[in-house]
Nucleic acid binder design. Structure first.
Lengths: 230, 230
DNA sequence: ACTTGTTAGATTGTCGACAATCTGATTGTC
DNA sequence: GACAATCAGATTGTCGACAATCTAACAAGT
């Protein structure tokens, strides 16, 4: 018998497709923070009844990118400067842990995948496709989590990533200018190939801090709006 | 104007109540791992239509304690030894981080709350209420996360906690015997009141490892069943 | 005996309609 | 004019029924 591994069949429910559509719209910033999602309007646009749409929304609420108030509506989460700081500081900790776990697991496939994903980032950068650039950069970053062989950690990171992707997308849309052409991932990749784990961990922190300052500045500019009650 | 803080009004949707009911049933082990949740049967028992039930189930799927296969059903997650190891190793990392963040935030209310929750654990222990003992112990443990002032971290921990609570409950039900009467939290509480942060962090690790060994042994006994495909 | 095709029953996924709730505009009163 | 009561419209929450899919049992062919 041929020893071919088939991957699971794609989800064929409307619900799953709706989730994918909505998630993409939110993470690319097409749906803005705080915006209300009108069930009837969206269900008509998608040519779908409200039932699967509502179930999809429940999933995204739990995923942390939507928020729901009974009888009032479901909204895209608001982004505050503190949210970004919180997400990033946790990300640092998780990165350090992920590198530690993944380090002894690195093999030929890991290095191949590393190059492959790095190449995808560079390509998106050359093509000036900002949305894809963000996506690929996060996928590159996610490699260590996939190799860490800890399902709970991976899951946690994926949740965190949703938000990070959203933050970056908002940032990009806000300044609405070309992406930095230089490749900030070069040294990161090199260090993951090297033999000095501590150095890789240290760099992960600093590299993050690099983009972070920009992002934070953007976040603060958002704060100018609604002064929270009291 | 009086400076009274009102807490949010209780959720009044059926969905929210269903979520609470189901979560409790799962986390206390009344619904066993792998068990299928029949929508029609449950909706009839709860005197509710399938719509809010299904929405509730979607939430719990995203919460990580249910798993769903299209057109096949929704099941309580299976618990493998590796899941427990993964959850615990991540918990250690998060604990260390939470203590670091919470440390400078400790105030009078923190210490009061600490004693209060510790007392709740002791009371549940005396009453031999194992379910409540698990609950209160996790709440005691969660204090550092609440004081860490990092919403993403808190959220992450709450997700993790769901599973830990389920694991412990299964463990308790399995051995079906009285709970250890001695108070393992005494030194933990003392260290959080002290001035040596590193010591508190170190203890958090070791304290966790204590219960962990028992739990792991139980998990391994579960593995004896279904040998995974191939 | 093994595989393949068929079918009946049960269960999940989806739909359209109705009920409950919120929002804001309008009216009435002082 | 300010304020409370009322009401209409819109939106969310829930329901019961139908459609799509799966499972397991059985029949037929090799």
């Amino acid at each position: 018998m041929a020893k071919l591994d088939f991957s699971p069949i794609a989800d064929t429910t409307r619900r799953a497709e709706i989730v994918a559509l909505l998630r993409r719209a939110i993470l690319t910033g097409q749906l803005e923070p705080g915006q209300k999602l009108n069930e009837l309007r969206i269900s008509e646009q998608m040519r779908v009844s409200r039932a699967p749409l509502r179930e999809a929304m429940r999933e995204l609420v739990q995923e942390g990118i939507l928020t729901s108030i009974p009888y009032a509506g479901t909204f895209v989460i608001d982004v505050t400067a503190k949210d970004i700081v919180d997400a990033y500081s946790l990300n640092k900790v998780l990165d350090e842990f992920a590198i530690e776990l993944a380090w002894p697991q690195r093999d030929r496939r890991f290095f191949d995948e590393l190059d492959h994903r790095h190449e995808a980032v560079k390509q998106a950068t050359r093509a000036l496709d900002t949305t894809r650039q963000i996506e690929t950069a996060l996928q590159l970053h996610g490699l260590i989590y996939e190799w860490a062989d800890n399902s709970v950690l991976l899951e946690t990171w994926q949740r965190l990533t949703s938000r990070l992707q959203m933050y970056f997308a908002l940032h990009q849309r806000a300044r609405n200018e070309a992406v930095p052409a230089l490749d900030v991932h070069e040294t990161y990749v090199a260090l993951l190939k090297g033999s000095h784990m501590k150095a890789a961990q240290r760099h992960a922190r600093e590299h993050i801090d690099l983009d972070f300052e920009e992002l934070l500045a953007y976040a603060r500019s958002l704060e100018k709006r609604l002064p929270k009650g009291a």
